[in-house]
Design a protein around this nucleic acid. Structure first.
Length: 839
RNA sequence: GGCCCUGUGGUCUAGUGGUUAUGACGUUGCCCUUACAAGGCGAAGAUCGCCGGUUCAACUCCGGCCAGGGCCACCA
């Protein structure tokens, strides 16, 4: 192949991609003797198309994969899709025009998997286009496919056998729209306005005396479990008209400014404990008690707890050994306990009861307040806490162990470790993993009439309890199937095993686990990362991967979060259309791991520039190396002229530095180390300096030209290999056009990462060469300032330098004269380096 | 409220005790120099968020403050 006139990125990338596919360049060889490097690639949700944040984070992983491959590892680089969740369910329903909830599970799986099979190729194409070097053909999975269901259900059985799983009744965070339990991690914060009502509750034992409590959830009063005060706290009794109000001593001045009152008595919490109060509309006695959560100087110093206003209330009930009341049903509506408000959803009941309380004179004050409430991430409804029977992985007592194991990961960047630390240390709940949804992987359990549990044999997995029976159960026994499904994280926490299950050789499977690298974005540290490590540690007492590399978010050019609703998203497909895949990858290579960075189109532009430069410099080299032979690749440093030695020697330092940077996952640094060497030292300087010697061997000598050819081939080829992980298309194109005639590998991506040749490393040569280049720069500057052409001749350049430098420069004096067009170059021995130019 | 990250020319960014403070984009002058006009070679442009401290020496270390972003928690 040879070089076209101009580099056409789109055409070229298309052809190169086909070439890779035909030749299976990135296929994983499970019979390899090489050391493996395994990557737990995040499976994207099969929906819509790849977004630009994906483009950046996946390429960042790809740089590592390609580097490792070139460094001699057999890279295990799978690519699955996460199709187990609501997003997929919605998508399939929309595209297939079916309601999956009306189907049997088997049918729902069949339809979904059919959809995935039909669309996977197209969906994954964006990643392939980007040059992600995963083994898409052999190492794939879907989190809803049969293998995945089997693995998920097996891990349920394993955890159960270990005694870590339990089904129990208890309060759970609840999504009333989807009518399912949800996890701590599925909550989202929402800031909004709410009314804080100050309500009076009559003390039964004393006439006209009331406790004042405040609440934002008046509709939950029917679930009141008690009223609490702080036992040692100070309270006051106020006389208001002909009533007596009891409230906190520290705050009444501020709270009741608008009210005409008179302080009649000072009290402590002790004085109130044991009293019976009447909460408006609640026809049940409520006792006043002490509770640690109540502070006399906060609010009114008096609080009621209901089932359930929030997690705090749940603990409150536990502390007081009080049985909760079922005020809200699973659809989020008030039960018959709610009296006249029965059937209303909480927000509606709230506004109605507020009006009633006000009308009946129970509200003494109404405060508008900004509050942060938890809403369900998926439905957007207020989170309610209700009592129901759920399945749990009991791990709350293992927080310390988890934190210990989390510290064993090799974190990049290091500070992301504190995220998981905060999360683990702040965990309050066991892992409630059952979901009351139809679409999902079923929990593999049956019950008999007495409530005994029956489990399937491993050999029959995956099962659907709704249609299957456990082999072990007596034939005529009547069994009731469990209808709940597993939380999606229960499945995606095992992506390592899912990916590895593609491998046939069990020996190889063992080698691949734990995986070497888990790349992921920081927003799911508390989900995917945490659940993955928790589950692996519960099952095997080991971490599922060794290194964690956390990528940042890609923000819009102004540094704001991209979102569809804001309309500030950028489609990677359009960027590629405008520039190229290499260019987009280059931009991704410019960002530091773990940092949120704004998208800068100029970086993409710079990437295209680099690709053009690679094309042109190598096209030029191909012309000048017409008579170059494979055996010419070998040379000794001493065979070369001094400026040739310079570029070859400098290359060694560059390789050394870039290799260290890659090993430390300092990807953007490695990229710019090589890029700068190639752009500045090789293209701008070295090639310019030796151009004439290469062009005119008849004038400057065949032997002299050969030296430059040898150095040029060496530095260009190694630069090409060093840039191959970042811009795989253009480097492959150039390799196919030229280097393939000299090298044995079929693809540049099968060649090895540049190695440092210590015989070529010489700091003195590099220093002197840099001074040589300085002379060139000064001459250019001189001409630029005089506004004359670069071709214009200079009569003399006088260089003041050390004797060593003089000898170095003199050895390449012909090149210096050529590049500066100086007629005469004279030297003066001096400690201080200086250049004088005469026109 | 606790914790984490960030603050360097117009914009983005490198820089972990001594540098003429890096590079890119943008701006600008010259040049169609036999690879490259989606180019080449130059130039201009930064009191390194603010205030203190440590030090012979601070963009760099320490403390405080300010600003932006994030995580977690609280939320009667």
């Amino acid at each position: 192949m040879s070089f076209e006139d101009k580099y056409n990125a789109h055409e070229s990338e298309q052809k190169i991609r086909e070439f890779w596919q035909e030749n299976k360049i990135y296929e994983f060889d499970e019979n390899t003797s090489k050391i493996t490097f395994s990557i737990d690639t995040p499976p994207p949700t099969l929906s819509g198309r790849m977004h630009i944040g994906h483009a950046f984070s996946y390429t960042q992983t790809d740089f590592v994969a390609r580097y490792k491959r070139m460094s001699g590892f057999e890279v295990f680089y799978p690519f699955g899709t996460d199709d187990n969740g609501l997003a997929t369910e919605k998508l399939v329903q929309k595209e297939k025009k079916v309601n999956l909830r009306n189907q049997t599970r088997d049918e729902a799986f069949r339809i979904t998997n059919e959809y995935i099979a039909e669309n996977r190729e197209q969906f994954v194409q964006d990643w392939k286009d980007l040059g992600i070097s995963a083994d898409f053909e052999n190492l794939n999975y879907s989190t809803i496919d049969e293998r995945s269901r089997k693995i998920s259900q097996q891990s349920f059985l394993d955890l159960y056998k270990k005694g870590l799983i339990e089904q129990r009744e208890g309060p759970v965070a609840w999504d009333r729209v989807f009518q399912t339990a949800i996890a701590q991690a599925e909550l989202e914060d929402l800031e909004r306005k709410a009314f804080l009502l100050y309500v009076k509750a009559k003390i039964k034992s004393t006439e006209n005396t009331y406790l004042i409590y405040a609440t934002t959830r008046p509709e939950l009063c029917f679930g009141v479990g008690g009223v609490s005060v702080e036992d040692n706290g100070e309270y006051v009794k106020l006389k208001v008209a002909n009533e007596f109000w009891i409230t906190g001593a520290a705050t009444y001045l501020e709270k009741f400014q608008d009210i005409d009152y008179e302080v009649v008595e000072k009290l402590t919490g002790e004085d109130l404990i044991g009293e019976i109060v009447q909460i408006p509309y609640v026809d049940r006695d409520v006792k006043v008690s002490h509770d640690v959560a109540v502070k006399a100087d906060f609010g009114t110093g008096i609080a009621y707890f209901c089932s359930y206003g929030g997690p705090e209330d749940i603990e409150w009930f536990t502390r007081h050994k009080t049985k909760p009341f079922e005020v809200l049903a699973k659809d989020g509506r008030l039960t018959k306990l709610g009296g006249k408000y029965e059937g209303e959803v909480a927000p509606d009941a709230r506004s109605k009861i507020t009006k009633d309380l006000e009308a009946d004179g129970f509200v003494i004050k109404k405060e508008k307040k900004t509050q942060n409430v938890n809403i369900c991430e998926r439905s957007g409804a207020d989170v309610e806490y209700i009592v129901s029977k759920q399945w749990y992985v009991n791990y709350i007592d293992k927080k310390e162990y988890f934190w210990e194991m989390a510290q064993k990961f090799d974190w990049t960047p290091e500070f992301m470790k504190t995220r998981i630390e905060n999360w683990i240390k702040g965990l309050n709940w066991d892992w409630g993993f059952s979901r009351q949804r139809k679409f999902g992987i079923p929990i593999p359990v049956w019950f008999d009439k007495e409530g005994n549990k029956y489990f399937p044999e491993s050999s029959q997995l995956p099962v659907d309890p709704l249609k299957d029976r456990p082999i072990s159960a007596p034939e005529h026994l009547e069994l009731i199937p469990e209808t709940d499904v597993l939380d999606t994280w229960f499945t995606s926490a095992r992506t390592t095993q899912l990916a590895i299950s593609n491998v046939k050789s069990s020996e190889m499977r063992d080698k691949l686990f734990p995986m070497d690298l888990r790349p992921q974005a920081h927003d799911i540290i508390n989900f995917w990362l945490f659940y993955s490590m928790a589950k692996s540690n519960l099952l095997f007492e080991c971490n599922p991967f060794k290194k964690v590399a956390i990528s940042g978010w890609l923000l819009d050019p102004k540094g704001k979060k991209m979102s569809k609703s804001k309309g500030n998203t950028i489609a990677p497909q359009e960027v590629v259309e405008k520039f190229s895949n290499d260019a987009l990858r280059f931009a991704a290579a410019s960002t530091k791991l773990g940092q949120d960075i704004p998208y800068q189109e100029k970086e993409v532009k710079t990437g295209l520039k680099l690709a053009n430069k690679l094309f042109n410099a190598n096209k030029f080299a191909a012309m000048l190396l017409k008579d170059f032979k494979p055996e010419d690749r070998d040379f000794k440093l001493d065979d070369l002229n001094s400026i040739d030695k310079w570029i070859v020697s400098k290359l060694q330092f560059v390789i050394q530095q870039a290799t260290t940077q890659m090993d430390n996952y300092d990807i953007s640094f490695a990229k710019s180390t090589i890029e700068q060497f190639f752009m500045s030292d090789v293209a701008d300087n070295y090639i310019e300096i030796v151009k004439q010697r290469l062009w005119k061997p008849e004038e400057f000598g065949i032997k002299e030209a050969k030296k430059a050819q040898q150095a040029l081939y060496n530095v260009l080829y190694n630069s090409l290999k060093g840039l191959a992980p970042f811009v795989p298309y253009i480097t492959e194109q150039v390799y196919q056009n030229f280097y393939k005639d000299f090298e044995s590998e079929i693809s540049v991506h099968k060649t090895s990462w540049p190695k440092v040749n210590t015989n070529f490393m010489n700091q003195e040569i590099v220093d002197n060469g840099n001074l040589f280049v300085e002379v060139v720069k000064q001459a250019r500057k001189f001409k630029a300032e005089k506004q004359i052409s670069m071709k214009e001749e200079l009569s003399q350049i006088k260089i003041s330098c050390s004797n060593d430098t003089k000898e170095f420069i003199e050895n390449s004096i012909v090149d210096l004269k050529n590049v500066t067009s100086a007629q005469e170059i004279i030297f003066e021995i001096s400690e201080k380096f200086n250049i004088e130019i005469t026109q």
